[in-house]
Design a protein around this nucleic acid. Structure first.
Length: 491
RNA sequence: GGUCGGUUGGCCGAGUGGCUAGGCAGCGGUCUGCAAAACCGCGUACGGCGGUUCGAAUCCGCCAUCGACCUCCA
């Protein structure tokens, strides 16, 4: 088998993936901060790393996939400085912070399920790992790279940068950072504007806080990922993923914290997905131009011409390479919708193909190309292109313009099951005549279509068309075949 | 201002120093009572200007332009 190659942000190169422990992979991905409903932007890392998770398993690795839930610790950088994002929302809505956390965690999980994103192996919460974070902070102090002041603990970036390359992941130079750091908090207790909080003293009105060696407080922005990733995956571990927007400062800080805690870098391969844009601009909470996933599924948003199914969103995202920016548009989404349908239909058709003596198509070659595409840094757009080549083959065989032998047919079945369903994670969303969701409904549709056949036999085209058009209006897709008819219902 | 990354046909999106993905839309044809689906055929694109090369959309330089990060953000 050929090597699996991934792009490592750390080296800015494609590298052969070699796990630290043969046969096992530790994967950590930054999950959501649960203070709002998930939007399209959240779906990209979730889907990207879901495909990575699925593919690693397909390759035979035993994978431990950790994706955190951030439920404490993000500071709000406005008038309410020092107040926790989640606590702030709680006051507005007069809910307990943990009530908010629970609500949005539930909705996030529901959305992920809809997108056919597999649950991670472990989904740790920051609030559930306060002790681990306190220990991590203590290690940073012990190693001399963090200092306590007035009940808060800060990471000493200057001291760290003197002996370690701070900025190596994001390609930043410490001098540049100095000149660019805004001087907003002149009265700050930090030694330097570059320093970041690893533990923050809680103001009296602050709701979420825990006791620590430095007094009542809460963990800083980046502490949780360092504590939780290494707790479950060890250090160093194999792959750390996340959105490109987390590269700096979050991931840079994680490297520094890791070195401060363990004396070596915590991660072998860093992977970053690019962002989704809307009209060429980043879709983000701060810009207020995001569309929630639920809004996609219902079509209930000004920018949406119609609803789009979760799998359509998934297909749309995977038709672009994860490291490329992807621009949202109704047109692109509708193109994805139709393409997905064609792929799913052909995949279902494989079951009905009748093998012959000879194969006129190169199934082994197709499989090789599909493997190669995935091995080349998860090139899902290329993989999908090859799968569409196969779609043409499948349809041609069905039309009698090509042939396939028994063994090739078996390979083809496995190939499409593996890539379309297991790895890319697509699934059929239509209720077809065969599988059917509601048996009575199916029987009624069959009845109507049988009446239509009778009408056709009498050349009563008016009745025939009336039945077909009415069913089409209701969302059924009717196809006439040699044997009679086929139908499918689309939500 | 600093750092990084884009600019591909009507739209979306891959990719490689020469063999010039794929999807969607469009056009013509086959099939069909008409459709739908499917199949066959068609469209020859890589921001601009230079340079390297037998040959560049692909490498280099300059310019233009867009974006991301530098502050919480997937």
């Amino acid at each position: 088998m050929s090597d699996f190659i991934i792009y490592n942000t750390l080296s800015r190169k494609k590298e052969i993936f070699e796990p630290i422990n043969p046969g096992h992979v530790g994967l950590y991905v930054c999950g959501p901060t649960v203070y709002g409903e998930a939007h399209l932007g959240h779906s990209r890392p979730a889907i990207t790393f879901d495909v990575l998770f699925r593919y690693l398993k397909h390759l035979g690795y035993k994978v431990r996939y950790v994706r955190n839930i951030t439920d404490v610790g993000h500071l709000v950088n406005d008038a309410d400085e020092g107040e926790d994002k989640i606590a702030r929302k709680a006051k507005v809505e007069e809910l307990e912070p943990m009530e908010i956390v629970q609500m949005y965690t539930n909705s996030y999980r529901r959305n992920m399920l809809q997108l056919n994103v597999l649950p991670p192996s472990i989904e740790p919460t920051a609030s559930g790992h306060i002790i681990e974070q306190i220990i991590a902070v203590q290690k940073m102090i012990d190693s001399g790279f963090a200092y306590e002041i007035n009940g808060s603990v800060y990471f000493d970036v200057e001291k760290y940068a003197a002996v370690h390359p701070y900025g190596k992941l994001s390609g930043r130079k410490i001098e540049d950072l100095y000149t660019n750091t805004r001087d907003l908090d002149a009265q700050s207790e930090k030694k330097s504007g570059l320093d970041f909080a690893v533990w923050k003293k809680a103001a009296p009105e602050h709701i979420m806080h825990w006791p620590s060696p430095w007094g009542e407080g809460f963990p800083g922005w980046h502490t949780e990922c360092t504590a939780m990733s290494t707790k479950y995956l060890g250090e160093p571990f194999d792959i750390h993923g996340g959105g490109l927007d987390l590269l700096f400062p979050h991931h840079e800080a994680e490297i520094a914290q890791g070195v401060a805690c363990f004396g070596h870098e915590p991660v072998r391969y860093w992977m970053h997905n690019n962002l989704i844009t809307i009209n060429g601009q980043k879709m983000g909470k701060s810009l207020g131009n995001f569309i929630k996933l639920d809004e996609f599924f219902t079509g209930n948003h000004l920018l949406l011409e119609k609803p789009y199914t979760p799998i359509c969103i998934r297909f749309f995202i995977l038709q672009a390479h994860y490291r490329s920016p992807l621009d949202f548009s109704n047109e692109a989404l509708q193109a994805a919708e139709k393409g997905l349908e064609r792929l799913i239909n052909a995949t279902a058709l494989i079951e009905k193909l009748i093998p012959t003596e000879q194969s006129s198509i190169d199934v082994a070659g197709l499989k090789e190309k599909c493997d190669a595409a995935m091995n080349d840094d998860l090139n899902t757009p290329i993989l999908i292109a090859h799968l569409f080549d196969g779609v043409k083959m499948i349809n041609s065989i069905n039309d009698g313009n090509a042939s396939i032998n028994g063994s090739d047919l078996e390979i083809l079945k496995t190939l499409y099951n593996d890539f379309v369903f297991e790895i890319l994670g697509f699934k059929s969303e239509a209720l077809s005549g065969e599988s059917g969701g509601n048996e009575v409904l199916g029987d009624v549709v069959d009845l109507l279509l049988n009446l239509r056949i009778e009408a056709k036999q009498h050349k009563d085209w008016a009745t025939s068309d009336k039945i077909r058009n009415s069913l089409t209006q209701l969302g059924f897709e009717i196809k006439d075949t040699k044997e009679g008819f086929e139908w499918a219902f689309k939500k």
